[in-house]
């Protein structure tokens, strides 16, 4: 097999795999919506407001509910909870009174 054929084959396989990624993603998304994969009712009832990503500080566990100045206690560039603390930003400015 010529090198160019090998290269083109590689590209075709690569492009095919990448084209299949959205299909796989769609399939997995559908699967996650099936009743058995949904979060338990007990959790949805709680009306949670935040993702449990970083648990080390109040404003990283519940960025949306924290005191507005809390993130600044270590922001910017404070090293207390680096690196996670530095990418949880302060909540965006209020638009209600």
């Amino acid at each position: 097999m010529r090198n160019s054929s090998r290269f083109l084959l590689f590209v075709v396989v690569g492009v095919t795999v990448i084209a299949l990624l959205p299909c796989h993603a769609h399939y997995r998304q559908q699967a996650s919506l099936r009743p058995m994969n949904r979060p338990p009712e007990e959790l949805t009832e709680l009306q949670l407001t935040d993702l449990c990503l970083v648990t080390e500080a109040r404003h990283t566990r519940h960025p949306s509910l924290a005191d507005r100045h809390a993130p600044f206690q270590e922001h910017p560039l404070a090293l207390e909870f680096f690196p996670s603390g530095s990418f949880i930003l302060p909540p965006s400015p209020h638009d209600s009174p």
Partner: peptide, 17 residues
């Protein structure tokens, strides 16, 4: 993301492309 967290979620992300 873990940073200094002791407790860290072990999530399997649902793919989005």
């Amino acid at each position: 993301l873990k940073g200094w967290s002791i407790l860290y979620p072990r999530f399997q992300l649902v793919p989005v492309v």
